[in-house]
Simulated assay, not measured.
Amino acid sequence: MPVTHLLYLHGFRSSPQSAKARQVAQRVQTQHPAVTWWCPQLPPSPQAAMALVQQGIADWPRPTMAVIGSSLGGFYATWVAEHTGCKSVLLNPAVDPARDLARYIGEQTSWQNPEERFFFEPAFIGELQALTLHNQPPPERCRTIIAKGDEVLDWREMAARYASAQPLLLEGGDHALSDFDAHIDGIFAFLDLLSI
């Protein structure tokens, strides 16, 4: 069954204006206009972020929805896929954000708009811990793209966490997946989005 609804979850300090989110949005709008597309601006609180997502996809058909997540969004996408059974594509997904983001407690700025500020609260670490899953995603429903050159996250940790999803390991590359153009066709082929 083709995917009719696609959710994109951006990473920490990112937004729907990220390069990857915009590329996916453009591809959906030009080649799959019948697909419902949603890329929300996620609040800093993980609990609030997942509440927003759950509310937004409440009426989506579980068998024909899918989620793409990048970095922290990949961690969130894993949670969404686990709770909906939907297909997922994870791009350099965060494995243990409760550990990794502890050093970012305090005021932060957005990558796409440095004038936008938010406060990352100590309580958010506990919220991330509450969302942590440890079971491997089913390989037929999950694809993971991991850059060995990721300067933010440890590719070995990502590869081990998502071993069952047969991760595509890229030699070199970076956390932002600057060569995303080279992978978008494969992502869309896996997702099998509804075409008119």
Score class of each variant (00 low, 15 high):
2 P>S: 15
3 V>G: 01
5 H>D: 14
5 H>N: 14
6 L>D: 10
6 L>A: 10
8 Y>E: 02
9 L>T: 09
10 H>C: 10
17 Q>C: 06
17 Q>H: 12
22 R>G: 06
22 R>D: 05
24 V>R: 00
29 Q>R: 14
32 H>K: 09
33 P>L: 11
38 W>K: 06
39 C>P: 01
39 C>Y: 04
40 P>E: 10
41 Q>A: 15
43 P>S: 07
43 P>T: 09
43 P>N: 08
45 S>T: 10
47 Q>S: 14
47 Q>T: 12
48 A>W: 10
51 A>I: 07
52 L>G: 05
53 V>E: 02
54 Q>A: 14
56 G>T: 06
58 A>M: 10
58 A>K: 13
59 D>F: 05
59 D>V: 07
62 R>Q: 15
62 R>A: 15
62 R>F: 08
63 P>S: 12
63 P>Y: 08
63 P>M: 11
66 A>S: 11
67 V>F: 02
68 I>C: 10
70 S>V: 08
71 S>Y: 03
71 S>K: 06
72 L>R: 07
73 G>R: 02
74 G>Q: 11
77 A>P: 08
77 A>R: 03
79 W>C: 07
80 V>P: 04
81 A>E: 01
82 E>C: 09
82 E>I: 03
83 H>C: 10
87 K>Q: 15
87 K>V: 07
88 S>P: 01
90 L>H: 06
92 N>L: 07
93 P>D: 09
93 P>N: 08
96 D>T: 13
98 A>H: 13
99 R>N: 08
99 R>C: 02
102 A>Y: 01
103 R>F: 04
103 R>T: 15
104 Y>G: 00
104 Y>V: 01
106 G>W: 05
107 E>H: 04
107 E>F: 00
109 T>C: 13
111 W>Q: 04
113 N>P: 00
113 N>G: 04
116 E>R: 13
120 F>T: 02
120 F>Q: 01
121 E>V: 06
121 E>I: 05
121 E>H: 15
123 A>T: 14
124 F>D: 01
124 F>T: 03
126 G>N: 12
126 G>H: 05
127 E>S: 08
129 Q>A: 13
130 A>W: 05
131 L>C: 12
132 T>P: 02
136 Q>T: 11
137 P>H: 10
137 P>D: 12
139 P>H: 13
139 P>G: 11
141 R>H: 14
143 R>G: 03
147 A>W: 06
147 A>G: 05
150 D>A: 12
154 D>H: 11
158 M>K: 02
158 M>P: 01
159 A>K: 10
159 A>H: 12
160 A>Q: 14
161 R>V: 03
161 R>Y: 03
162 Y>R: 01
162 Y>A: 02
165 A>Q: 02
166 Q>Y: 10
168 L>R: 08
169 L>P: 07
169 L>F: 09
170 L>K: 03
170 L>D: 02
174 D>Y: 00
175 H>D: 04
177 L>K: 01
179 D>F: 00
179 D>A: 12
179 D>T: 11
179 D>R: 08
181 D>W: 04
182 A>H: 07
184 I>C: 03
184 I>G: 01
185 D>A: 13
187 I>P: 00
187 I>E: 00
188 F>K: 01
189 A>M: 07
191 L>T: 03
193 L>M: 10
194 L>I: 03
195 S>Y: 02
195 S>G: 12
196 I>S: 14
